[in-house]
Simulated assay, not measured.
Amino acid sequence: MTGDVPTVQYRRVNFTTLTRLDYSGVPTLPRMGRSRITVRAPALTNPPPAAVLTGLDRIFEATEEAEQLTILAYMTVETGTGEAMLALVGHPPPVLISPVRHSRALQRRARHSLGWPAPRQQDSLTIPPGHTALLYSDGLVTHRQRAMDAGLAGLRSAVGKAPASALADPKRLLDHLLTHMLGKRELDDDVTVLAVHIPARR
């Protein structure tokens, strides 16, 4: 389980959450590391997210087997303005959280994993000052007894119960959401959560 709140000082930053599903019986961890390196390569020249995914499709189609599925969310953010571009590959939709506990999905879930060539799309959006964009893997909201719709409803409920002080502090917000969503249950899936917070203007 990982929850991340990176501190950045660059004008434009790329954020990625990656999940690998392997049904071939081969250990996943080494291939996950390789996948992370592969994802970074097309992004070095900072192209739009849809172009990054199209390049990754070519790479994964040539190198991965049918039993190995890789899904991700890829977002670029202008840190000064909160302007962002988002593309999803089989990943649950990121959630935008407001300073008054409102939350909404930023994009619908894409159907195809990497390596299944399909027209890749991206959405333009804005993370307003004081808001937080939450990127997360399926494991945060689903498990054997909870489907995606119920999990997303649970996530919205958890946001609504967040302490006011956590809405301006992404680390505290992640701690609250992980505690509320996971509790003490035994995890049957990897959980990755990434909070992208644009500070309120003073």
Rank of each mutant, 00 (worst) to 15 (best):
L106D: 01
A150S: 09
T19C: 12
L18P: 00
P94N: 01
I97C: 10
R108A: 13
D22A: 06
F60S: 03
S124T: 08
M75G: 01
Q145K: 10
T192H: 02
I127G: 12
A105G: 04
P99N: 14
P119Q: 06
T2C: 15
P128G: 08
G82C: 00
D149S: 03
T76F: 11
S113A: 15
H91Q: 12
L53I: 07
A118Q: 14
L173Y: 11
T76R: 04
P6V: 05
I198N: 03
A41G: 07
A105Y: 01
R156E: 06
P99I: 13
M75E: 06
P119D: 12
A158F: 01
G115H: 03
Q145N: 11
L18W: 02
G25W: 09
E78K: 09
V77D: 00
R202S: 14
V8Q: 02
L182F: 02
L44N: 12
A66Y: 11
P163W: 05
R172I: 01
L18D: 01
L21I: 08
V26M: 14
T16F: 07
N46W: 07
G151T: 10
S157K: 08
L125D: 09
A158C: 03
Q9I: 10
S98C: 12
A153V: 08
G90W: 08
L177G: 03
R11H: 07
T16Y: 10
A105S: 04
I127C: 11
Q107F: 10
V89K: 05
L114T: 08
D22K: 04
R101W: 02
L134E: 10
A153G: 08
G183E: 03
L135T: 10
S157C: 05
M181F: 06
D22P: 07
K161D: 14
E64W: 07
R104C: 02
V39I: 06
P30F: 13
G82Q: 00
L187S: 15
M1N: 02
S98T: 13
S165A: 15
E186K: 02
A73D: 06
N14W: 07
A51T: 12
A43F: 06
S137I: 00
L72A: 02
L114Y: 03
K184Q: 14
V141Q: 12
R185G: 06
V159N: 00
A73N: 07
A66P: 06
S103K: 01
A73Q: 12
V159R: 02
L177E: 03
V191K: 04
A150R: 12
V77N: 05
Y23S: 10
T132V: 11
G90Q: 13
M85S: 11
G139E: 04
A162P: 05
N46R: 09
T19N: 15
K184F: 12
D57C: 08
P27K: 03
I198W: 00
A162S: 13
V196A: 00
T179H: 01
V77M: 02
D57M: 07
T54M: 14
D169V: 04
R156Y: 10
L18R: 02
R31D: 15
V159M: 01
A147S: 14
A73C: 09
E78V: 06
A105K: 00
Y10G: 12
R20Q: 15
A51L: 06
T7M: 04
P48D: 14
Q122W: 14
R185N: 03
L178M: 12
G80M: 09
L53C: 03
R31Q: 14
G55T: 00
Q121C: 10
R109Q: 15
R111G: 15
M148K: 01
G3P: 10
